[in-house]
């Protein structure tokens, strides 16, 4: 019997999180990494809202935090894409392996 309580959501968000990590680690396309980051953020968001739902004292804070994370993620995605476009313009490739100029 699957009881849907907090731990179920926690497991689900952990799963989403690890998928996001896997996506970051396996994509050479910069946009792919960005997609992974979005997954991670969503996993965290899910965590927040689930906690808000199942912990009485966290009712409002969870949602508010989740809204802020959504806003931040959008902003970050915009900036990241601007950077990637810039990078593409100068290097003509979106491969992050080419972005290794900052080396020692």
């Amino acid at each position: 019997m699957i009881v849907v309580d907090l731990s179920a959501f926690l497991v689900l968000s952990a799963f989403l999180f690890s998928c996001g990590i896997a996506c970051i680690a396996t994509k050479r396309n910069a946009i792919g990494i960005l997609i992974g980051v979005e997954l991670v953020l969503n996993a965290a968001n899910l965590n927040f809202v689930a906690a808000a739902r199942y912990l009485p004292s966290f009712r409002l804070e969870g949602q508010i935090f989740a809204i802020m994370v959504i806003v931040m993620a959008a902003a970050e995605a915009a900036v990241a894409l601007a950077i990637f476009l810039n990078f593409y313009h100068t290097h003509t490739t979106i491969d992050v392996e080419s972005a290794s100029d900052l080396q020692g």
Binding site: A25, R28, A99, S100, L102
Partner: peptide, 8 residues
């Protein structure tokens, strides 16, 4: 050399 510049 540890600072490879490779993001991945």
């Amino acid at each position: 050399r540890w600072q490879t510049g490779r993001i991945r």
